[in-house]
Design a binder for these strands. Structure first.
Length: 572
RNA sequence: GGCGCGGUAGCUCAGUUGGUUAGAGCGAACGACUCAUAAUCGUUAGGUCGGGGGUUCAAGUCCCCCCCACGCCA
């Protein structure tokens, strides 16, 4: 039995994520986690909210709440939504947890001991009205280059010129609008990533099986210009993890916190401790997943993320781990995704464009979204959501091919023999051929799932569903019944077993429908079909079943039009 | 401007290290069936593989140039 550690990129606390975010990390990670559990592997699947940083502070202020309260509320909102989408995290933690505080401070201490932390004095803009230092992007003013009046302190959106906040004419706070700004000296810690460049480079070079999208982004950051740059890991903010050197205070760093990019990935580890702490279990139980010196050496660690997160996961977080000099588990495989577009443009959180997780669940069950999003996952390039395609694909795949198969065979059997698996009759060459075809396709499905080829897995699963309809169509039990009821019984018996088989195979994609199918077949046997022929005899003659409600109600044109219209603009 | 990923049937996409008449699903047309969610199954039509050069006995698949879309960075 293999042991597999899976993490999904952790969503930022601020606001509800859209379907593009969902399909870019959490959903495929869940697919992989569910599949591996079904295969009998030991899985630890972790996710969390990323809670620190200025955007969270501003959103809390806008909501008129203390930032800690705001984050606690938004964590619950996101937790409920991930439950709604049936994301099967073992732990959905918080980067603001005490566990992450301690671990982040521990890593900083180790890095300092290793000589990889440098104190740098720099000048930063302080807003007297806001009572705080302002990150570059929260300073606005007139661009000295083109005269654009709403240029940001890091860059002018109009002429794209790279700016320093002090370049701006009539600079003002983007938060309060105040022009009462002054430049102050402040001291920050930098992680000397440049010293780890060759080590990181060797490590990346050894990853021959990683997607090109992943390694090319990493190599670019390692090699472009002067190579990997040192990065600041602290900020002058209130909301965050206080800067400490392990358990010790850090002289000169009082009142400062770690920068969000530094503490967020450490939460991958901390969430495992949150997981065992919540259950009152000892540290050894999570450390066996993360410490290669105490049990994690046989763990395979897979990360899922959108392409925008690749630099942090290939370089920054590994730099933290390598630099610590401690035997933490490094990632073995990174599965990265492109973007899902919405009806001719991008999904946008800031503009409220597209469909968001809460809205999606308001209009349809999660299985519909899971199936469509996963079967169209943006793996090789960006892909696009349109309501027409969504309606067409979901109706055809889920309602007509899978749902209708379950419906036709259960209703036919009930009409002829009652709600019980019929006995009698012999299997012939048609059944042998079906089992051969199924075996080949199930093996292909397994290999695609193991390779995290999401779209190919979906296509293979669909082909497996089609085999059932083809079989029924060719052996036509409704005709055979008239002359040879025993033979028809054998066909029905096999087909009812197919329903159970489909439930097991489909569960990673459509978990709710899988439960409905198993319940209808009146069984708890969800064992994986290592041998298809054996699996198709799980429900013996005489076993009672029920006819389930329609598994997937079709999306009507009127609904589609209403939704397309409702989600055509910005979120209100 | 640099870099990256793409540009294959109306649509969404597969096409391994170059090798027989370029594939799948959807959509379309026609046919079969009637158990079923007006579902299913079968057959057929449809592409000069973005454009132009080149290497090769042979290129969607390698090399060069160009065009288009998207993204990242500066």
């Amino acid at each position: 039995m293999a042991r597999i550690l899976i993490t999904s990129a952790i969503p930022y606390i601020n606001g509800i994520k859209h379907l593009g975010n969902l399909v870019g990390s959490q959903l495929p990670a869940d697919l992989y986690a569910r599949y591996n559990r079904a295969r009998g592997n030991e899985v630890l699947f972790l996710c969390a909210t990323d809670e620190h940083g200025t955007p969270a502070e501003l959103a809390a202020a806008k909501a008129g709440k203390p930032v800690a309260d705001y984050c606690a509320e938004m964590w619950q909102v996101q937790k409920d939504l991930s439950d709604g989408f049936r994301l099967s995290f073992d732990m959905f933690g918080r980067s603001s947890s005490p566990q992450n505080h301690a671990l982040t401070q521990h890593f900083a201490g180790r890095l300092a001991d290793a000589g990889l932390i440098e104190e740098v004095s720099e000048k930063q803009v302080f807003s007297n009205a806001d009572g705080r230092f302002l990150p570059d992007r929260y300073i606005e003013g007139t661009c000295p280059n083109c005269g654009y009046e709403r240029a940001r302190g890091d860059q002018c959106e109009n002429c794209t010129k790279q700016l320093d906040p002090t370049d701006l004419i009539d600079a003002r706070s983007a938060i309060s609008g105040s022009t009462d700004l002054e430049v102050r000296d402040t001291k920050h810690l930098y992680l000397k990533q440049s010293q780890l460049r060759s080590k990181l480079s060797d490590w990346i070079a050894s990853k021959h099986d990683w997607p090109i999208l992943t390694t090319s982004i990493a190599k670019k950051w390692l090699n472009d210009g002067d190579g990997l740059q040192d990065r600041g890991i602290t900020r002058d903010l209130d909301w965050g993890i206080p800067v400490k050197r392990g358990d010790e205070d850090w002289p000169g760093m009082e009142g400062k916190v770690f920068y969000v990019w530094f503490d967020a990935p450490i939460e991958y580890i901390a969430s495992a401790k949150e997981w065992t702490d919540a259950a009152g279990r000892p540290d050894a139980d999570w450390q066996r997943w993360w410490r290669t010196d105490i049990g994690a050496d046989d763990v395979r660690y897979v990360q899922f993320m959108g392409k925008d997160n690749v630099p942090f996961h290939t370089l920054s977080f590994p730099a933290t781990i390598m630099g610590s000099g401690e035997p933490w588990k490094l990632v073995d495989y990174i599965k990265s995704f492109n973007y899902l577009n919405y009806d001719g443009g991008q999904f946008s959180t800031s503009q409220g464009r597209g469909v968001f997780m809460d809205q999606a669940l308001e209009i349809l069950p999660s299985d519909y979204w899971r199936w469509w999003l996963l079967s169209h996952a943006p793996e090789s390039s960006d892909s696009e959501f349109t309501w027409e395609a969504f309606q067409q694909d979901v109706n055809k795949d889920l309602a007509d091919v899978l749902g209708n198969f379950v419906s036709r065979i259960t209703k036919f059997s009930r009409a002829k023999w009652g709600e019980v698996v019929p006995e009698g009759g012999e299997f012939g060459p048609e059944e042998a051929a079906l089992i051969d075809d199924l075996t080949a396709r199930v093996r292909a499905y397994e290999s695609h799932m193991e390779a995290m080829e999401v779209r190919k897995s979906a296509a293979e699963l669909r082909a497996i569903w089609v085999l059932g309809n083809e079989y029924l169509q060719s052996v036509a039990p409704w005709t055979v019944f008239k002359t040879n009821p025993h033979r028809a019984a054998a066909i029905a018996r096999l087909s009812l077993n197919l329903v159970r088989l489909y439930a097991v195979l489909s569960a990673p994609f459509v978990p709710d429908a899988a439960v409905t199918m198993l319940d209808a077949m009146n069984t708890k046997d969800d064992s994986w079909p290592d041998d298809v022929k054996t699996a198709l005899s799980a429900l013996p003659a005489g076993h009672a079943f029920t006819v389930p409600d329609v598994l997937f109600v079709k999306i009507q044109d009127e609904d589609r039009d209403i939704w397309a219209d409702r989600f055509s603009g910005e979120r209100s």
